[in-house]
Nucleic acid binder design. Structure first.
Lengths: 249, 249
DNA sequence: GGGGAGAGATGCCGC
DNA sequence: GCGGCATTTCTCCCC
């Protein structure tokens, strides 16, 4: 591990074979691009993926402390004392430089994975649920078709209430905040302007709402409807993730 | 590598020693919590950090495809055919389950790092720059305070122009968009209301602005000022990252 | 702990 | 490519 001279060729070979590289090392990092950053010497885990994505992870925390997006070019050199990992993305004008003083471990391996994740419980699922069960908003609410929905851009749901008043709905899957209210306001005003109608209702549909957001909402004459986002996969998950399932498999 | 029975104890020991774990394996993943998700079988890199953060990375892409935040508990079991990595965070009501069919490599190592990153070129730097050099906005502009906190949010910079008109400034470090304009509008309206003044200017300061955002800004009588965010560390970086620097070191 | 807003946000879909 | 917006956003700061 302490002979650093072998790593430039190991890295080059692994990059050529499009392997996933993991490098645990003591290093310092400079970044220049959308901002300027410097990270003093410490132990980190560096990952280079087959698409040339580069991640530098500290030993704590969710997010990489430094990174380069896919499309970057990486090269490693050795100067007799340190390894230097230089990454650059000329299109994005981003540069990342790592000085490596010590390597704790190195591995590279070709990963085979062409699967995509399936997710339920998003804001899209929520607006779909409201389309299918408009009574969740209120009796007599009639959403317009999805085609017209797309025609008006980014409005989650809109339709007519039982009195025939045009109604704009903004869905949030978690706590409705000030931004959600201003977003709703913008859509209502856009609809008023484009349709030439003065009487348009605005409803914010979310499981919770912050106190300030509720006040602003009411000040502007809009409404809040408490709605839980759907979680379609829940039963599927519970059935699949029991150990019994796999023992039979 | 193909004897999976050893991994539960290896993982347990590594977790006990607060080492950083990297596990490259073929697996499928279930997540239940803020949403519901399922990821079919494929090769991934799993990382468990000393603070119990867990990341599942596919061989491409910037972000983890699944993850658990720090504060989660992890355990691994073996049923004679597969390994099961179960993570749960009871406080956040989040659950992640991994079925591992094959291990490509495993490593754990204690990482020592108590350094923090230094960043320049953020929005805060931008409002500081304007506060220090108010002439960047226009001649005679006099900033009163930074980050004025109001009940409807906080304002980056506000002050008086040379004619004595109260002026609200919203700074964005990149392209100003519709959200930035509605944010500025919200602040201006709040100031008008709380101070009881009708004549308040609103200026959006950013290097670029989207066409729709500019139109909305002008429709409402606000202004756009092109300002580049500062990059204080740039010279420092250029000096430090040359190889000569380290050869002398 | 909740609220509000930035982020080197990222990623997705639309035009 | 840009624009607009959701995100299992994450993170920070402040109340």
């Amino acid at each position: 591990m302490h002979d650093l001279s072998k790593y430039p060729i190991l890295i080059e070979d692994a990059l050529g074979r499009k392997e996933c590289i993991t490098l645990s090392c003591r290093c310092e990092v400079w970044y220049s691009g959308r901002a300027e950053a410097y990270l003093p010497m410490g132990d980190r885990l560096i990952i280079i993926k087959e698409d040339s994505t580069l991640l530098v992870h500290q030993p704590v925390g969710n997010n990489p402390i430094n990174y380069m997006k896919n499309g970057s070019r990486h090269s490693m050199t050795y100067n007799g004392a340190n390894l230097f990992l230089n990454s650059r993305n000329l299109e994005l004008k981003e540069f990342l430089d790592v000085r490596i003083a010590l390597v704790h471990f190195f591995n590279s391996y070709k990963l085979e994975d062409n699967q995509s994740i399936q997710i339920a419980g998003t804001e899209k699922d929520m607006s779909d649920m409201i389309y299918d069960q408009p009574g969740l908003i209120e009796d007599g609410f009639k959403p317009l078709s999805r085609e017209e929905h797309t025609k008006y851009g980014f409005i989650d749901v809109f339709g007519y209430d039982k009195k025939g008043t045009l109604t704009v709905l903004e869905c949030k899957r978690y706590v409705g905040d000030l931004k959600a209210v201003t977003q709703l306001r913008r859509y209502v005003e856009k609809i008023k302007e484009s349709k030439g109608i003065k009487d348009v209702r605005g409803i914010l549909a979310c499981p919770k709402i912050s106190p300030n957001a509720l006040k602003m909402l009411q000040d502007w004459g809009y409404e809040y409807k408490s709605i839980e986002p759907p979680k379609y996969l829940e039963r599927f998950n519970k059935a699949q993730k029991t150990l019994d399932f796999y023992e039979e498999d």
